[in-house]
């Protein structure tokens, strides 16, 4: 068998390897975290579009605050929730560059709600990648604006109760209503097929920016297995059964 493997393991037979746009730094994320998959997909698109020297990312506050350690492009790290404001100025001052933000649910849908809505409503020609795992991962698993009803977190330990905690926010549907958004979609990365679809979606969002179409929002419904206190495999299953009915996958708007 060893001989057969060595026969296959030749450069001409390589069908999938790590993109050069990803750095060699080992990611600080927990085992099984969705961030790593989205980072990879994003990096592959940057490589395939050959835009590594033309792309500037905006990092959020949250677990992915250190995304700039992993994707080898120029980065700015924003204050919590302010990434769309940074991106607005960056794109208006450098319209020749691809500008995207990478934000979690707390960043985009709680503290940065105003910046998100107004950037989208102005139709800023940027891409917003929205990682929605329904929890504040970095600070230890607190309730997020997107925590679904009944879901447990460290600040709703008995499950989210709308009468007390308010309702989960479907931010992506809300953004799709705005005239400035060109492409709004909700994806996931829990299976190989879902990863392929997410890659197509993010690629499309970057193409929209190239064509000056307006704001593109790609939500990726994600897991936070540490925050959810599950194994990565259990977390994927839980997400399919509980998150997808409330956050259905697919394109919401494509102009």
């Amino acid at each position: 068998m060893e001989a057969v493997i060595n026969e296959i393991k030749k450069p001409e037979n390589l069908v999938y390897g790590k993109t050069k746009v990803l750095t060699d730094n080992v990611m600080h994320y927990c085992p099984g975290c969705s961030h790593g998959v989205v980072h990879k997909v994003l990096s592959e698109i940057i490589e395939e579009m050959d835009i590594q020297d033309q792309t500037i990312g905006v990092a959020p506050v949250g677990c992915s605050v250190l995304i700039y350690n992993y994707i080898d492009i120029d980065w700015q790290e924003a204050a919590h929730g302010r990434a769309p404001a940074l991106a607005t100025a960056m794109k208006r001052l450098r319209p020749d560059r691809y500008i995207f933000t990478y934000q979690g649910d707390g960043d985009l849908a709680a503290i940065g709600t105003a910046e998100t809505i107004h950037a989208c409503n102005r139709g800023e020609n940027i891409v917003i990648i929205f990682i929605n795992n329904g929890i504040y991962g970095m600070t230890g698993g607190q309730m997020a604006p997107t925590t679904i009803e009944g879901m447990k977190s460290s600040t709703c330990p008995f499950g989210r109760e709308p009468v007390h905690d308010g309702n989960p926010l479907k931010m992506t549907e809300l953004l799709a209503q705005l005239p400035g958004t060109a492409y709004v979609t909700r994806q996931s990365v829990h299976t190989a097929g879902a990863v392929r679809k997410t890659k197509k979606a993010i690629r499309k969002a970057f193409e929209k920016q190239k064509e000056n179409k307006g704001t593109s929002v790609v939500e990726v419904v994600s897991t936070c297995n540490s925050g959810w206190k599950m194994t990565p495999v259990e977390a994927n299953k839980w997400m399919e059964e509980n998150m997808f009915p409330f956050y259905p996958l697919g394109d919401i708007k494509d102009v």
């Binding site: 204050a79 404001a85 940074l86």
Partner: peptide, 8 residues
């Protein structure tokens, strides 16, 4: 938003 646009 203004000051964060300045940041960007």
């Amino acid at each position: 938003a203004s000051i964060n646009m300045l940041y960007g």
